[in-house]
Write a protein that binds this DNA or RNA. Structure first.
Lengths: 187, 187
DNA sequence: GTCTATAAGATGATAGAC
DNA sequence: GTCTATCATCTTATAGAC
């Protein structure tokens, strides 16, 4: 299904995977090039500086997230169903891909990253929060802003704790709490 | 107040600060030695391998956390007050120290770290979860296990999102949600 | 405990051939 | 687009003097 992937996309797929395992600084041009069977100097043709690669990674991650969110929710009418799909994108990242969110790991490392990359991670979070706030507003929750930031925080945190403790139940407990108690308790 | 700090402690303080800014791989013996005004080779006397330093860092972080938790809660009788103190330790780390939790950043990088360090981060999370589960059990919450893992996840995640978005309100929203709705909604 | 000296390897990055 | 060759710099780490 990915046989026609162009070089840029192939590079980004591999780099994303590696960065979601061990972070920004642990990933080298050599590692990525090795996976692709090319030389590290060839990578610099596509992404001259590491910062360019990092920026492209976060931008692509954000873009794909928004696309999936739109695709998976466009036919849904109930905000609760839309929220379930939002959670499902995070679930897919953790349980199917077996990786934490790119912005969870880059977010944790943010103060030590090039400022442009930190800004891009910030934009990802802001977009998530805005989308969630609309959902909670539609659900007539009086504390929509609090629920929005806390939903994002809980999902990002649960990915990390689940990953470290190798226990998906931790993520599922968070998902259940959001879907059941966040909404019910605040109406 | 820290004038009599021995070398080991000084090293650990500086290394912890740096790792909580940019992660495990971004911190070098040179950086730490530079802050201390000594040579990197001197650091190897105290911590022969980087893994030794990493292990000592997480163990010390866990130990200090447990100590603070005990000190701040021993005179308290109500579980709700104890929970507030637990949250306050996280708040202090984020708002006073202006850093995320060491185990949030190492947890995110965990799959790429030496296994012993990952195990130590896991132990920190487990201890937190066990303490929280006791609190929620005392509060007669029927879903104590879910609330325990989700409280930890929410605090860790909120630190990261607050840090990236430079907005402490995100952390405070999470704290409020835990103190008010986690308990009330589940009784 | 801290220093100098040193090592082997990794890192991001560039110049220029094909 | 990818290669070879090369670079300065940084990295963890060790040996041995003071």
């Amino acid at each position: 299904m990915n046989s026609k992937m162009d070089s840029q996309t192939q590079i980004l797929e591999i780099a994303e995977r590696r960065m979601r395992i061990s972070g920004y600084n642990a990933v080298s041009y050599r590692d990525i090039a090795g996976d692709l069977g090319i030389k590290s100097s060839s990578l610099h043709y596509h992404f001259p500086k590491k910062e360019d690669l990092g920026m492209a990674l976060v931008q692509r991650y954000s873009q794909l997230f928004q696309q999936r969110l739109e695709t998976q929710t466009k036919s849904l009418t109930h905000p609760k169903d839309k929220l379930a799909e939002f959670i499902d994108i995070y679930r897919h990242a953790l349980i199917k891909q077996k990786l934490v969110c790119l912005c969870a790991i880059l977010g944790a490392e943010a103060p030590g990253l090039p400022p442009m990359i930190t800004k891009e991670v910030n934009t990802f979070f802001e977009a998530n929060i805005a989308w969630l706030k609309d959902i909670y507003t539609d659900l007539k929750c009086k504390n929509a802003a609090t629920l929005a930031t806390s939903t994002l925080s809980l999902l990002e945190g649960a990915m990390i704790v689940s990953s470290v403790n190798k226990n998906n139940d931790i993520f599922e407990a968070a998902a259940e709490l959001i879907e059941q108690q966040f909404i019910i308790s605040s109406k």
